[in-house]
Computed example of a mutant assay.
Amino acid sequence: MHQKPGAPQYVAPPEWLLRAVSAPSISHFVQHPDVRLHYRSWNASDANKPVLLFAHGYRANSHWWDFIAPYFIDHYRVFAMDFSGMGESGPRAQYSPEAFTEDLTVILETDLGPATVIAHSYGGLRTLRACADRPDLIQHAIILDSRVRFLDVDSGQTISTPSPRSGSTQLHPSYEAIRQRYRVLPEQPLPLYDLFEHVAFHSIEEVEGGWRWRADSALPYTLVECDGSALLGRIDVPVDYVYGEGSSVVEPWRAERIASLLRYSRGAICIPQGHHHLMLDQPLTLVAVLRALLNNRPA
């Protein structure tokens, strides 16, 4: 069985990428009655700085922020979390939208909140729910390309229940074999190979008998928040909404509607040439947008 390389196998990494991924981080774990949760920090000892927490999308992990988060340590105490069943967080016996929101609030309650939260895709939906349910834990949220459903236009499920599992229990014979199968969903143009290589490397692990994805195979295919209007209408926390111009998940009209329903929003912010996974195809633009939003945070 071939061994996993000791580090991602970059081809031509730019200096900014190497500088970011070279920033040291440490792991933290918090034991909840239902699950052991993992999160990482880059500068946890900087207690005089406000907290900034990054939350990833579905079936991803905290390493998706490795080339984004370090650019904020000068002004923030920076953390990134793993939702249950993903990354280094443990699996749950049963998954639900409420359980994933609980992951976020448990980590914030441990010693981070109240915090600013930057969240992508499904992590953004869980953050919106936390903004509505636990506004004491979140001072400001920035939501990245999260699809909020609306009852009057979105058909399908009408309740927040799990769908069939999304993962495969298949083990692969080598790191190289499983690495060749790695894809992001939805697929999109990925102009910089080394970013893709970095997230792929951290999404694969060796177990007895072979190699597998670093996500629980029992994770449902999706968990739906159905009534977006009701959810957004309950939020009193300042929330900014950012989406990609070429996103296959969030249409421009949907982004505008989401922003219009948020009580303290500065409108939908579109990243030109960005797709759903903004940190992969427009990383430096994303850093610039996030810095601008954080530096001019609404009161």
Rank of each mutant, 00 (worst) to 15 (best):
E109F: 00
Y182H: 14
E176M: 01
T101N: 08
A119M: 04
F201M: 09
V153S: 13
S174A: 11
S203F: 05
L112R: 12
A80S: 15
Y122I: 10
V148Y: 01
D103G: 07
R165K: 13
D136N: 09
T127F: 01
V21G: 08
H202G: 02
P191M: 03
T101V: 13
I271A: 04
I107V: 14
D281S: 05
I107P: 04
D111N: 10
V21S: 08
H2E: 15
Q139D: 15
L261P: 06
P14W: 05
W64S: 12
H140R: 15
L125N: 12
T105A: 07
Q31I: 02
G267N: 06
Q3M: 14
G123Y: 12
W42M: 05
A130Q: 12
A99L: 13
V239Q: 07
D82M: 09
I235T: 04
G209D: 11
E197I: 02
T127W: 01
L17K: 07
Q139M: 05
R19M: 03
I271H: 05
P298I: 04
R165Y: 00
E256R: 15
A93R: 10
P164H: 03
G113W: 11
D34G: 01
L294A: 09
I26G: 14
P13T: 05
G210R: 03
D34N: 11
Y243N: 10
S89T: 09
W42V: 03
H198I: 11
V250S: 12
D227R: 13
Q139C: 06
R254W: 00
L137K: 13
V199G: 04
P272R: 14
L112N: 05
Y95L: 05
H38G: 05
P13N: 05
F67Y: 13
C270N: 12
E245S: 08
N295R: 15
L294E: 09
L261E: 14
E245L: 06
Q139P: 00
Q170T: 10
A55F: 00
D136A: 06
A119E: 06
L232N: 12
W16E: 02
S62N: 10
I68P: 02
V106R: 11
R134G: 02
A69D: 06
G233P: 07
P220C: 07
G90W: 04
W16M: 00
A93K: 10
T285S: 14
S89D: 07
D236V: 08
S27C: 08
A141F: 00
L278G: 06
W211R: 12
G244T: 02
Q139N: 14
H56V: 00
R92C: 11
P24E: 13
D216M: 06
V249S: 13
S247W: 03
M1K: 03
P91G: 08
P50N: 11
V250I: 15
L261I: 05
P5N: 12
A200I: 01
E98H: 09
Y193P: 12
R257T: 03
P24N: 12
R297A: 11
L171M: 06
L262M: 11
V289I: 07
F29D: 15
F67G: 13
R36E: 09
P91C: 07
R179V: 01
F54R: 08
A60V: 01
P191V: 01
L232T: 09
D227N: 15
P24L: 10
